[in-house]
């Protein structure tokens, strides 16, 4: 039996007296997609940034592949962040370099991990643009010339080019048109399956987690109020808040 890729225990982050998140614990297994839902301010984004090492939690432990992430030297954590981990931001411009071409955006992680052959870097960039359905003729265009949906797909290519194992996503479909969302979700689902990615995805969109997540965590006021199989939590919610959340969604 394999071991969890990420183990979180008793995680807490406070902002002064205010609770960012507290008492969070879970295991993420290889190839598993974990959704985190909750309304704005429920602590889901704080939790994600603590897990990804962008913020330091005040208490608790995070273990990645048997290694204590919080005790790790920064060099090692940043090396992980550009090799085995990936982080997809809600706003593509936070995750992209807007001043350089699409090809350079995809190639950066390769170059950061020692690739020094221009032709091969470019070939890999073209392959990845193709995988995220961006025409290769756009390789030398800057992301500023791309639509929102294309920018988001470019961000995904840039993150996945080094074949990471663990991907953090913060509202990856937020702010996109519904039709563009569907395309992105389909793409993500295919990549998750084909690359065997483990994913933690934060969103407030229950339809997104239903389509993408194996498992769901519901957060409220910095705490996890319910977790379980995604469709079970959505169709048979046990907690009062989850019931309210699920029943608040407008039916189409």
């Amino acid at each position: 039996m394999s071991a969890p890729i990420l183990s979180v225990r008793g995680l807490e982050r406070r902002y002064g007296a205010r609770i960012g998140c507290t008492g969070v614990g879970f295991d993420l297994w290889p190839g598993e997609v974990l959704g985190m839902v909750g309304e704005s301010g429920s602590g889901k984004s704080t939790l994600l940034s603590c897990l990804a090492g962008h913020q330091r939690p005040d208490a608790g432990s995070v273990t990645y592949d048997g290694r204590d992430v919080l005790a790790m030297p920064e060099t090692e954590r940043r090396r992980l962040a550009r090799t085995e981990w990936a982080y997809v931001h809600q706003h593509a411009r936070e995750g992209l370099r807007m001043g350089v071409s699409a090809g350079a955006n995809v190639g950066e992680r390769l170059m950061a991990t020692g690739a020094r052959h221009y032709g091969r870097i470019r070939a890999q960039a073209i392959d990845w643009l193709d995988r995220v359905e961006i025409d290769e003729t756009r390789i030398d265009d800057r992301p500023t010339a791309f639509s929102g949906g294309m920018q988001q797909r470019l961000q995904i290519a840039r993150n996945l080019v080094t074949g990471p194992r663990l991907v953090f996503m913060d509202e990856p479909t937020g702010g996109l048109d519904v039709s563009v969302q569907a395309r992105l979700l389909d793409l993500l689902r295919g990549l998750v399956r084909d690359m065997g990615l483990s994913v933690i995805i934060v969103t407030h969109d229950l339809a997104v987690v239903r389509l993408l997540a194996d498992r769901l965590m519901v957060m409220k006021s910095g705490r996890v109020v319910e977790q379980g199989l995604t469709d079970q939590v959505l169709d048979d919610p046990q907690d009062a808040y989850t019931q309210l959340l699920v029943s608040s969604v407008l039916q189409v």
Binding site: G228, L229, D231, Q232, D235, D236, Q238
Partner: peptide, 9 residues
């Protein structure tokens, strides 16, 4: 049926 499928707890 839903319980057997794991959809209902």
């Amino acid at each position: 049926m839903r319980m057997i499928q794991g959809n209902y707890l």
